[in-house]
Simulated scan of single mutants.
Amino acid sequence: MTAESATTQPAAARPAIRVEGLGKRFKDLVALDGVDFAVPPGTVFGLLGPNGAGKTTTIRILTTIVRPSAGRAEVLGTDVVARPAAVRRLIGLAGQYAAVDPNLTARENLRLIGRLTQLPRHRRDPRAADLLARFDLAAAADRPVRTYSGGMRRRLDVAAALVPEPPVLFLDEPTTGLDPQSRTALWELIRELVAEGTTVLLTTQYLEEADRLAQRVAVLAEGRVVADDTPHNLKARLGTTVLELGMGEDPRAARAAALLTDRLRQRPERDGALLRLPSPDGSLLLMDVLHALEAERLTPRTIAVRESSLDDVYLALTGHRTDDRAPDPGTTLEGPPS
């Protein structure tokens, strides 16, 4: 599909973001390898995966910071390579690290962003005041940002991305490092933005975050999309709960894993002396597991039943846990365009 045909499509029929065969190579390292997904307008789309999966590289391409090595990407029908300046007028970006000046006040930061994004002079002060109130920063609006807490800085960073009222907002791991209260507050702000029509592409390592916010998510592994579905369906692939058995010693865990594989026709994941089994019904699985183990005098030392997590989903899809991966090369190997 050509850029001309994309821009003539009815807005209702066109995704807010379209990615087709996207690839990015940093010298000998392949960061993205044929990524495809589409984001409907007025929704939250989550990119899931651990560090090194390609999430930040994807964001940097979509926001015109780096150029792809292959494939194409569009924002509201506008090609990110052919028309980068036009794309920048359509988007807001809050990256992993705060882009605001710590020596300026919050109000001064938002005014500056308004000037840089060519917001009309008469709208800069009202827009800054509106965002400061909305993000619960009005009381601290005239304090230097260096005096802010981590949660306050993160809210200000998202507010800065919204100064020009972009129809598409990119949030790269926006809640990493935040306390639970700050994270919940930011989730609520994201919901409000989407209710008003903003399209949000969110990268995160937390399935809980995507589950609460995103209508659809894509799971990235080593630069490829290994799943693209709703959060509910992703968790349902391996069961809504996970049974964890602490066997105390590696040899006992090995014997228990072999026994359960034979008796239940389900191979547990083994992490040293810890066994994990996904299940759609944790209580029934627990009874079957305990009966099988007690018969061989392999009673677990500890037992836990919990909801599925991103690690569980990612492990089932890729064979790796989220903490096995290296940092995303998109954050370190190539800087902003000159």
Results as ranks from 00 to 15, higher is better:
8 T>I: 00
10 P>T: 00
16 A>Q: 02
17 I>R: 03
19 V>P: 11
24 K>P: 09
31 A>F: 05
33 D>T: 08
41 P>T: 04
43 T>A: 08
45 F>I: 01
47 L>C: 11
47 L>E: 12
55 K>H: 04
58 T>M: 03
62 L>E: 04
63 T>P: 11
64 T>Y: 08
65 I>H: 05
68 P>L: 06
69 S>K: 11
76 L>H: 01
78 T>W: 05
78 T>D: 01
84 P>K: 09
85 A>L: 15
89 R>K: 13
90 L>N: 03
101 D>G: 13
105 T>V: 07
105 T>K: 07
118 Q>A: 15
118 Q>P: 05
119 L>F: 13
119 L>W: 12
124 R>Q: 15
125 D>Q: 14
127 R>N: 09
129 A>T: 08
134 R>L: 01
135 F>D: 00
139 A>P: 04
140 A>D: 10
140 A>E: 13
144 P>G: 10
147 T>D: 07
149 S>V: 09
149 S>N: 09
152 M>E: 07
152 M>Q: 14
153 R>P: 01
157 D>F: 10
167 P>K: 02
173 E>F: 09
173 E>T: 08
178 L>V: 09
179 D>T: 15
180 P>D: 10
184 T>M: 09
193 L>A: 01
195 A>Q: 07
197 G>A: 10
202 L>A: 10
212 R>E: 14
214 A>L: 04
216 R>Q: 12
219 V>I: 12
220 L>G: 11
223 G>A: 02
224 R>V: 05
232 H>F: 01
233 N>L: 14
234 L>P: 03
236 A>P: 02
237 R>Q: 13
240 T>Q: 09
244 E>V: 13
246 G>E: 15
247 M>P: 07
250 D>N: 07
251 P>Q: 04
252 R>A: 13
253 A>N: 04
255 R>M: 06
257 A>N: 00
267 R>G: 00
272 G>D: 10
275 L>S: 14
278 P>F: 10
279 S>V: 07
281 D>E: 10
284 L>E: 12
290 L>S: 03
293 L>N: 11
294 E>S: 11
295 A>Y: 00
299 T>M: 06
299 T>N: 01
305 V>N: 12
311 D>Q: 02
316 A>Q: 03
316 A>Y: 05
321 R>I: 00
324 D>Y: 04
327 P>Q: 03
327 P>K: 06
331 T>E: 14
333 L>V: 00
